[in-house]
């Protein structure tokens, strides 16, 4: 990969990248009620990393990602499956959504197997996107 010499791109990426990542988590969490969700959030994070790869090169991107993308993919798949299992114990079909509501003071916090599933989707999509970017962009 020819490292981009554009200072503007690098600086902009450094500023935008954290914002994009935080925003992607926000998109993931709000996805059940407003536009967003695991696919979109995962793609958003993937785009952030791809941008970083264009600006700083794939090695830098791999360092930033810390985790091996394969771990992301495998872990994500596992989490989606885990999201489906609890329903089995209650005699429901695999992947049936279950909800628990907690109250922290006045604020209702909704937890669900559906959210777990969506987090798995997020990780898989991010893993796939970063694998593709890393592998295709790397000098071979």
């Amino acid at each position: 990969m020819t490292i981009s010499m554009s200072l503007v791109l690098r600086t902009a990426t450094r500023l935008i990248m954290p914002l994009l990542l935080v925003f992607s988590v926000y998109m993931l969490l709000r996805g059940h009620d407003k536009p967003g969700g695991g696919f979109i959030a995962g793609l958003m994070a993937g785009t952030a990393f791809a941008l970083y790869a264009v600006a700083y090169g794939t090695e830098a991107m791999a360092r930033l990602l810390r985790l091996d993308p394969h771990t992301l993919i495998g872990g994500g798949l596992l989490i989606t499956l885990l999201g489906g299992v609890p329903a089995l114990f209650l005699g429901e079909a695999f992947l049936t959504g279950l909800w628990w509501t907690f109250y922290i003071g006045e604020v209702a916090v909704k937890l669900s197997t559906v959210l777990i599933f969506d987090i798995g989707v997020y990780l898989v999509v991010l893993g796939v996107a970063s694998t593709v970017v890393l592998v295709l962009a790397e000098e071979t």
């Binding site: 696919f39 793609l43 999509v125 796939v128 593709v132 592998v135 295709l136 071979t140």
Partner: peptide
């Protein structure tokens, strides 16, 4: 929505295929 994401996966695969074939 899923079709868009999957077509991205397919495109990546096709790119790898073309790249490898060419190489």
């Amino acid at each position: 929505l899923t079709a868009i994401v999957i077509s991205f996966g397919v495109l990546a695969f096709a790119m790898a295929l073309v790249h490898r074939t060419h190489a």
